[in-house]
């Protein structure tokens, strides 16, 4: 089965979702991220959903679960890049993702978890992903 790649950037994990996920793929991503928080000791998880044209209740619950489990493992999860129509639809659906931090883009998300863009150069040298 396909997997969504998880990149390690310094003390954070970066996940960019660019495909329409079926439920098993979403579940696998949830498991992979929580496992990777443990093995890397990451303090932050950035999930870029700018490539998603919908987030339904299953995907919303996945984001919520990742954030909750991450918090218990001492990692902050930030969802970035949500498209405005997706946000409007989620609210109407009744899913407000109260437990999930959000930011408009990756750069602001990085700032939220205390990583500055300047750290990237160093990361590029040490980490291939």
């Amino acid at each position: 089965m396909d997997r969504i790649p998880i990149l390690k950037l310094g003390s954070a994990l970066l996940v960019t979702i660019q495909v329409d996920m079926h439920d098993r793929l979403a579940k696998a991503l949830e498991d992979d991220i929580t496992a990777k928080i443990m093995t890397t000791g990451a303090k932050g998880v950035l999930i870029d959903i700018s490539g998603l044209d919908i987030v339904d209740s299953f995907m919303g619950r996945m984001l919520d679960t990742i954030a909750s489990v991450g918090r218990m493992l001492d990692a902050t999860t930030v969802v970035v890049g949500m498209r405005p129509p997706v946000a409007i639809t989620l609210v109407e659906l009744g899913l407000t993702l109260v437990g999930v931090k959000t930011a408009l883009n990756v750069e602001r998300g990085m700032a939220l978890i205390g990583i500055s863009v300047d750290d990237f150069e160093e990361v590029d040298r040490h980490d291939g992903g």
Binding site: D23, I54, D56, F58, T89, L93
Partner: peptide, 30 residues
């Protein structure tokens, strides 16, 4: 989801309405 999106675009629905109907379809299909 993909087919509902295609039909919604063909119908001339705006992007918010497209997103709503595709999301509703996703819930019901699941």
């Amino acid at each position: 989801r993909a087919e509902v999106r295609r039909l919604a675009i063909g119908l001339g629905l705006g992007v918010v309405d497209q997103t709503k109907i595709v999301t509703a379809a996703s819930e019901l299909a699941r």
